[in-house]
């Protein structure tokens, strides 16, 4: 009887079921954590936010208007409208007026939304600024926001429970 010899052994099938399980769990976790709202108020790139221990939630009925303060520019709104430089913010009244008009318009829009839908949304200003920016510029923005009827002004920070301890260690 003739013996038939196989040239190659059968290729072992790669079991990817366990990998698929991991990926499924990971996918569900990531989808749960991502929302469009968190994208809007995430930490901007090229900006070092200050660190704080305390963390406050936005008021329940608050609608935020973002102001991003970079060392070289000020961007307003979620569309990142360029409102000029920091120097212009202090020295140029037109630049301040642009920001004020934008903020006032946003506050009016929120007011119109309230009257149309019978809601009670409060305009909130959320300032995201680099920690190396002098306070005189932040003061200007706070003044503009308060003038444009923004009663609640928030400063975006990074939560870090250890900054005070680290500061003490650095001082030693």
């Amino acid at each position: 009887m003739r013996k038939v010899r196989r040239k190659f052994a059968d290729a072992a099938a790669l079991s990817i079921t366990s990998l698929l399980d991991i990926l499924t769990i990971l996918l569900v976790f990531l989808i749960k954590n991502i929302s469009m709202e968190s994208q809007k108020i995430s930490a901007p790139q090229n900006m070092l936010l200050p660190t704080t221990i305390t963390n406050q939630e936005l008021i329940d009925n608050g609608l935020t208007v973002l102001v991003k303060v970079f060392p070289d520019k000020v961007l307003i709104g979620t569309d990142n409208i360029n409102a000029g430089t920091l120097t212009q913010l202090v020295s140029d009244a037109t630049s301040r007026e642009i920001i004020f008009n934008y903020m006032k318009n946003e506050a009016n829009q929120i007011s119109l939304l309230n009257s149309r839908k019978g809601t009670n949304y409060q305009p909130c200003m959320l300032i995201q600024a680099d920690k190396s920016i002098p306070c005189q510029y932040i003061t200007q923005l706070v003044k503009i926001g308060a003038g444009a009827t923004f009663a609640n002004i928030y400063f975006s920070t990074l939560q870090d429970e250890n900054w005070l301890r680290q500061s003490a260690q650095q001082a030693r």
Partner: peptide, 13 residues
């Protein structure tokens, strides 16, 4: 995904 936890400090006017 946003890895860092963005916190807030508020002022009320």
């Amino acid at each position: 995904v946003v890895i860092s936890q963005v916190a807030m400090v508020a002022l009320n006017f």
